[in-house]
Design a protein around this nucleic acid. Structure first.
Lengths: 205, 205
DNA sequence: TTGGAATATTAAACAGTGTTTAACTACATT
DNA sequence: AATGTAGTTAAACACTGTTTAATATTCCAA
């Protein structure tokens, strides 16, 4: 059935165009100021059409945030070549912080905004498998570190959560402008400098 | 001039009533779903009146977030009695995490939301002195720890920022529901458990 | 006590928002 | 050519923050 196939492709194509439009608008004006009507204007369709492809606005930004996770996971690929688990952990921290610094709006969407996670919570199938995969990778690395004799007396999962929180905390304070206002003179460097302080601690554990 | 005084008091009173209404609405439905009209309804005035007391919606929530800082700073008072700087640092972490867990919406407003900080940035007088005071208190404690021989080789300010980020990271991942979805089984305990992992590290430094 | 100035308050409008509905158009199949 | 279906739209609904001009209310001096 070639026609049904073509129709299917057309549907996918329009869905993709909606996503592309949503992404470009979102990256240049933020989530709040990207309206359904803006997106519709960009793709030259009427606003109503968007609801035939996405349940609501949250679903669009959930789809977008998945693109962000693909980017992040891809960046993490190089970690396979880092043998020493402690070095791997550090490299992971650097990649994470770099990703957030280079793609602040995407990071915001993935780890701070409520919109995409609300969509996950309301459709309870696979619970944030994108983010879950990333966290699992961290947990495995921590396990390797423990096997290599580091982090004695620690509990792997809670420790992984805490270490994730270190990098998340720094970049989210930066993204949500609490650095600008508390350390205005070193606001741009403070995240990487904070990361170095974290590395100093890792060097002794 | 008694009359002018009374007028001044009346103005202050209405401003206070706006704030009280805003706070109760905000705490039960969030910032986005608290509209100027809702607040006006609550105080039984027309919506326009609010703009005679506050420049815009951001200014209202900036005022509210200051109330939150007063609460936090008050909770921090007991720290004066903790002599050992490392113990003081730990106690500070516990207070911070408890505050965030008990007042998640207030914490969100103070450290995550964009609304109040945007107001700070647009009116550039005293740059977030509420938050600045809290951070300064942490910095002083860290200095005490360094004087007592801890954290050798570290740079005080960047270290303070990183340590702040540990607790902020944990509570903000929790508040913005990334714990629910990644560690659903231990979602409520994970923050205090993460804090314990942090304490374990402090015990060796 | 009354008139006028100043202040407080409001209704109405503006330009936008997400979302739903019923109507309409275009097209593949019979 | 007629029919059924899928794609698309215009219009409406109930909201939003904010500004405006008009209206009440209050105060003070004459």
């Amino acid at each position: 059935m070639g026609i049904a196939d073509r129709k299917e492709r057309d549907k996918e194509e329009l869905k993709e165009r909606i996503l592309v439009a949503a992404k470009s608008l979102f990256l240049e004006r933020g989530i709040e100021k990207t309206s359904i009507r803006n997106i519709a204007d960009q793709i030259e369709y009427s606003p109503g059409i968007i609801y035939h492809y996405f349940k609501d606005k949250n679903e669009i930004f959930h789809a977008l945030h998945q693109v962000g996770f693909q980017q992040l996971i891809e960046k993490m690929q190089v970690l396979g070549s880092v043998r020493n688990p402690m070095e791997r952990l550090k490299a992971m921290g650097s990649i994470y912080v770099n990703f957030a610094t280079e793609n602040p709006d995407m990071y915001d969407l993935m780890f701070i905004k409520e919109a995409p996670i609300e969509h996950v919570c309301s459709t309870d199938d696979d619970c944030w498998k994108e983010g879950g995969g990333t966290f699992n990778f961290l947990r495995l690395t921590i396990n390797d570190c423990i096997s290599a004799g580091h982090f004695q007396g620690h509990e792997a999962e809670a420790l992984s959560f805490m270490i994730w929180s270190i990098v998340h905390g720094m970049v989210s304070l930066h993204i949500r402008k609490r650095c600008d206002v508390i350390l205005p003179n070193r606001k741009d460097k403070i995240v990487t400098e904070g990361l170095e302080e974290f590395f100093k601690i890792l060097d002794r554990i």
